[in-house]
Simulated scan of single mutants.
Amino acid sequence: MSDLLLTVEQAAERLGTTVRFPRRLIAERRIAFVKVGRHVRIAESVLDAYIDGNTVQPIRRHRSRYGRAA
């Protein structure tokens, strides 16, 4: 299993945010990361799991066939 390790800059680009956001996730330990010496990397699968875990599904409202009375 070879999982690509992304730099913080690459992770930010993938999330569509500034570099500050993934750095804050790392500092608050809200996302798993790999430390290689002084370099920080985020596994692609971890980033995918973070995106999936924070995706909000739309609310499906079931409308009744009857309209409201005036």
Results as ranks from 00 to 15, higher is better:
45 S>Q: 08
41 R>E: 00
27 A>G: 05
37 G>Y: 02
36 V>A: 14
58 P>C: 08
11 A>V: 00
12 A>W: 02
47 L>E: 03
6 L>T: 00
31 I>W: 02
16 G>P: 01
22 P>I: 00
52 D>Y: 02
16 G>S: 04
56 V>Q: 13
3 D>N: 15
56 V>A: 12
63 R>N: 12
61 R>C: 10
16 G>I: 03
41 R>C: 02
64 S>F: 07
67 G>K: 10
11 A>E: 00
26 I>A: 02
27 A>P: 00
66 Y>N: 12
61 R>L: 14
43 A>T: 00
52 D>Q: 15
17 T>K: 14
35 K>T: 06
44 E>R: 14
63 R>C: 10
65 R>L: 14
10 Q>W: 01
34 V>N: 07
33 F>N: 07
38 R>F: 09
14 R>T: 07
68 R>M: 09
55 T>H: 12
12 A>Q: 02
47 L>S: 05
50 Y>W: 15
57 Q>T: 09
21 F>N: 03
17 T>M: 11
34 V>R: 13
14 R>L: 05
49 A>Y: 00
35 K>V: 02
49 A>C: 01
70 A>R: 13
50 Y>A: 03
16 G>Y: 00
56 V>I: 14
46 V>Y: 12
18 T>L: 12
28 E>F: 02
62 H>V: 11
18 T>E: 14
10 Q>K: 10
37 G>H: 03
31 I>C: 08
22 P>E: 06
46 V>N: 15
24 R>H: 11
31 I>M: 11
29 R>S: 14
34 V>F: 04
32 A>K: 14
19 V>A: 11
47 L>G: 02
58 P>G: 09
68 R>L: 12
51 I>H: 04
63 R>S: 13
40 V>H: 07
32 A>G: 10
39 H>I: 10
56 V>F: 09
29 R>W: 05
7 T>A: 09
19 V>S: 09
10 Q>P: 03
69 A>G: 11
8 V>K: 04
39 H>Y: 12
35 K>P: 01
14 R>E: 10
42 I>Q: 01
33 F>R: 04
5 L>I: 02
42 I>V: 13
16 G>E: 01
33 F>Y: 15
7 T>G: 06
49 A>K: 13
44 E>I: 02
64 S>D: 11
3 D>K: 12
57 Q>F: 04
66 Y>K: 13
20 R>I: 03
48 D>H: 12
11 A>F: 02
58 P>M: 07
27 A>E: 14
65 R>C: 10
68 R>T: 11
18 T>V: 11
57 Q>E: 11
20 R>Y: 06
14 R>V: 06
17 T>P: 00
19 V>M: 08
69 A>N: 11
53 G>N: 12
18 T>Y: 05
28 E>H: 07
44 E>P: 01
15 L>H: 06
23 R>M: 07
14 R>A: 06
47 L>C: 06
47 L>M: 08
10 Q>F: 01
60 R>L: 11
51 I>R: 10
14 R>H: 05
38 R>H: 12
45 S>K: 05
25 L>S: 06
19 V>L: 07
41 R>M: 06
52 D>I: 03
14 R>I: 09
37 G>K: 08
39 H>A: 15
3 D>F: 02
35 K>R: 15
37 G>C: 06
32 A>Y: 05
66 Y>M: 11
33 F>T: 06
20 R>Q: 13
2 S>D: 14
16 G>H: 03
53 G>H: 05
8 V>M: 08
42 I>E: 00
64 S>W: 03
58 P>L: 08
63 R>F: 13
38 R>Q: 13
3 D>E: 15
12 A>C: 04
33 F>H: 15
